[in-house]
Simulated assay, not measured.
Amino acid sequence: MAPETRAEGGAEATGQFAPANLAEALSAVCAAAGLDPAGAELLRCTNNAVFELATAPVVVRIVASNALRHRVDKVVRVATWLAEYDVPAVRLVPGIDQPVSAGPYMATVWESVPHGGHRPRGRDLAKLLLRMHELPEPSFPLPAWEPLDDVRRRIGEAEGLDAADLDFLRDRLDEVSDRLDALEFALPASLLHGDAHLGNLIPSPAGPVLCDFDSASLGPPEWDLTPLAVGVVRFGEPAGRYRELARSYGFDVTRWKGFPVLRAVRELKLITSVLPILSSRPEVRPEFFRRLTDVRRGDDSARWARYT
Rank of each mutant, 00 (worst) to 15 (best):
V78Y: 07
E184H: 15
E137F: 06
F251R: 04
I96Q: 07
V76R: 06
G250P: 07
R255V: 02
L53I: 11
S279F: 01
D178P: 10
S248V: 02
T293Y: 14
P57Q: 09
D97Y: 07
L148V: 03
P138W: 03
L129D: 08
L68Y: 03
D124H: 08
G236C: 06
E137R: 15
T5N: 14
D224Y: 00
A239D: 11
K74M: 13
S112M: 12
P138G: 01
A49D: 00
G236F: 04
A54E: 09
P205L: 03
L26S: 06
A239H: 11
G103A: 14
G231W: 03
L201Q: 12
H193T: 09
P286M: 06
T108A: 08
G240A: 08
L268C: 12
N21I: 10
L169R: 03
V78I: 12
L148W: 01
V93E: 15
L275T: 02
A89W: 01
L180G: 10
L210E: 08
E244F: 00
D252Y: 09
L225E: 04
G194Y: 00
A38M: 12
L42T: 09
F51M: 03
N66H: 11
T55Y: 07
C30T: 02
H193E: 09
S177E: 15
A196C: 00
S190C: 15
Y249R: 05
E287C: 02
P19N: 02
F251E: 08
R119S: 07
L278G: 05
L228W: 08
E24N: 10
R123A: 11
V75N: 07
L128R: 11
R77G: 08
S248M: 00
S65T: 12
A40G: 01
P114C: 01
A31K: 12
P120D: 00
S139Q: 09
V109D: 04
S279L: 10
S27V: 08
T308R: 14
V109Y: 02
